[in-house]
Amino acid sequence: METLKNFLLEISGQTAYITINRPAKLNALNRETLVELADLLKTLETDTQVRGVIFTGAGEKAFVAGADIAEFKGLSVAEAEELASWGHREVMDKIYHFPKPIIAAINGFALGGGLELAMACHLRIASEQAKMGLPEVSLGLIPGYGGTQRLPQLVGRGKALEMILTGDMLDAQHALRCGLVNEVVPAADLISTCEQLLAKMYAKSSTAIASAIAVVNEGLRNPAEGPAAEIKAFGKAFETKDFEEGVSAFLEKRKPNF
């Protein structure tokens, strides 16, 4: 692919490491960065070597400290709606529905669009100094990249409204207690913790993992249809090679070779 301007990409083994590389701007998400990320996701989705992704931010201060607010000035209502719609469709939803596990390694500030990016990922691991929040109301705005929808799913309606309406930041331990992140670790252990989680997943069926992600998301999107989606996906698994290998390995008392 073309040379990346706003990201560092390293593929090692089965893992793609994506580092948002705008440290002078605290890795803020401008339009150019989001367009580049959308293209990067398309490439990684079809890369058969890659089975998982770790997102992090360059530098020691920020994962992503928000959107690039300077780009908001002067937008019309229609332009603002299109900006949010495009960001949902081409970036945040693509991450949320990505068929390979994506872990956000939150190494510092994850604010506004940065927290929305982290919430779109499947798992979130935070360093001890990380801070998270949705401060948009202090700009006369609300979250526009899925924050009002995904935060309540993770922390509940009451806590989500507290965070959104006050704009307050949470420290890492507070975020852990309310379910916003999966784990908090020392900064030195952040990437290795993500790698250990992915290693466990790589020992499992990639087709089953992709199916599980899709069915969990469908149940959250449409609870009434969730059970039917699970039943259909469960049945479909029986025609996969991974099912044959998994059952054979179990009966033969050996590790499966997925």
Rank of each mutant, 00 (worst) to 15 (best):
L4Q: 01
F7L: 00
I11V: 14
T15V: 12
A16T: 08
A24C: 05
R31F: 12
L41T: 01
K42R: 14
E45M: 11
G57W: 05
G59F: 09
G66E: 00
A67N: 10
D68P: 02
G74H: 11
E79Y: 04
E82P: 04
E82I: 11
H88A: 06
R89S: 13
I95C: 05
H97Q: 15
P101Y: 05
A105Q: 02
G108T: 09
L111Q: 03
L111N: 00
G112R: 06
M119I: 02
M119P: 04
A120F: 00
E128M: 10
Q129L: 12
A130G: 07
P135T: 06
L139T: 09
G146H: 03
G146Q: 05
T148Y: 09
Q149P: 03
L154M: 13
L161T: 08
L161S: 13
M169D: 09
M169Y: 12
L170H: 02
L170F: 04
D171V: 06
V184Q: 07
V185I: 06
P186F: 00
A188Y: 03
D189E: 15
S192W: 04
L197Q: 14
L198R: 00
L198C: 00
M201C: 08
Y202M: 06
V216R: 12
E218D: 14
E225G: 11
A229P: 02
A229F: 02
E230H: 14
A233M: 06
K236S: 13
A237D: 12
E239C: 07
E239Q: 14
T240Q: 07
E245M: 13
G246L: 12
R254H: 11
N257G: 11
